[in-house]
């Protein structure tokens, strides 16, 4: 009977489409499109672009600045102490006669180093933890989530301060203190993302169309996770810079004569009512970095995942 209704359809009218690998790619969509899309969206966002440009500028300055100033960051010269900006010393000199221009950029390097290091470790741990938790599910997920819930309940500032008192102050200690509580947020995000993806329709569709696990991870999970990782990175970095500055301010920062933006600000703060340029230059760079990272992060979030909130 069924053939009767479809009498007009004959097998000759059908041709095998042929499932070659290239077609499969097309179904998945070339991953580069995702980034190209994102970049296009980002380019439209003037504010975010400004953030990006100034970050690039600050990073470049941080590495070039100390080279072109002609002074070492630790070279003291008490005969020229506390001189304001001049053609000799572009940002002036501090109480040891050290060149502030050199020290600010050197400090920026250290601040950025701490921030990037902390952020990357956060992300590494966070992705690993979150992915494992979500991938295995079940009781493993339950246990791992309970652990996270407990960690979230710990006031991080307090933990960071306690760690700083116990360990020898220095760049690595600060990084460690930042990471201790920092990775939790990332882990939660990744887990949520993976869980969500597991239930997405396109994921199911891709799977039923014959995509293997490896390819699913590579084509679908990774780009999505990388997207949130990047967004999170952009939020984590200014946080880390801020935290490091805070620690320096309350006297738990890095060891002298090294300087970070935070320690320069806290040293400069003492000169607020007198040679206030010692505060303004590092504080300016600090604020510029913070603003730029936050603006870029906002823009990236819109560009990479317009649906994501918070």
């Amino acid at each position: 009977m069924e053939t009767g209704r479809r009498a007009t359809l004959t097998p000759e009218m059908f041709e095998p489409v042929g499932m070659d690998a290239q077609e499969g790619e097309r179904i998945a969509g070339p991953p580069s499109n995702f980034w190209r899309d994102a970049w296009r969206r980002l380019k439209r966002n003037k504010v975010a672009l400004f953030g990006l440009v100034s970050i690039v500028f600050v990073i470049a300055a941080a590495y070039v600045g100390p080279l072109i100033s002609g002074y070492g960051p630790y070279a003291q010269d008490l005969s020229v102490r506390l001189q304001g900006s001049s053609s000799e010393h572009w940002f002036g000199t501090d109480s040891f006669g050290r060149d502030l221009f050199t020290r600010v950029w050197q400090g920026t390097q250290i601040s950025l180093y701490i921030a990037f290091l902390a952020a990357f470790i956060d992300i590494a741990i966070g992705i690993g933890y979150g992915a494992i938790s979500a991938y295995y599910g079940g009781w493993i997920d339950s246990v791992m989530q309970r652990i996270i819930e407990i960690l979230v309940g710990i006031p991080n500032l307090v933990v960071v301060i306690l760690v700083m008192i116990i360990l020898q102050p220095g760049i690595l200690t600060i990084t460690f203190a930042l990471v201790i509580t920092g990775w939790v947020g990332m882990a939660r995000l990744v887990r949520g993302q993976v869980m969500q993806l597991k239930e997405e329709e396109f994921f199911l569709a891709a799977r039923s169309l014959g995509a293997g696990t490896g390819r699913l991870i590579w084509k679908h999970l990774i780009p999505n996770i990388v997207a949130i990782a990047i967004i999170n990175l952009m939020f984590t970095i200014p946080n880390a810079i801020f935290f490091e500055a805070f620690l320096s301010f309350i006297g738990l920062g890095i060891t002298v004569p090294q300087a970070s933006l935070g320690s320069l600000v806290s040293d400069g703060y003492k000169f607020l009512q007198g040679d206030s340029y010692l505060l303004w230059f590092p504080a300016g760079v600090l604020c510029l970095l913070m603003i730029s990272f936050n603006l870029l992060a906002d823009g990236l979030r819109d560009a990479l995942d317009p649906r994501m909130k918070k």
Binding site: K46, V47, P238, F242, A245, F246, F249, V265, S266, Y269, L272, Q273, L279, A283, L286, C287, M290, I291, N294, L295, D298
Partner: peptide, 25 residues
């Protein structure tokens, strides 16, 4: 929108330990 965003971002970007003393002074 940009203005509101910048104001908000400034709020996160300026540490309270810089803002506090400045206001005090």
């Amino acid at each position: 929108d940009s203005t509101a965003t910048v104001v908000a971002v400034l709020g996160i970007s300026i540490p309270s330990f810089v803002l506090g003393p400045l206001m005090q002074y």
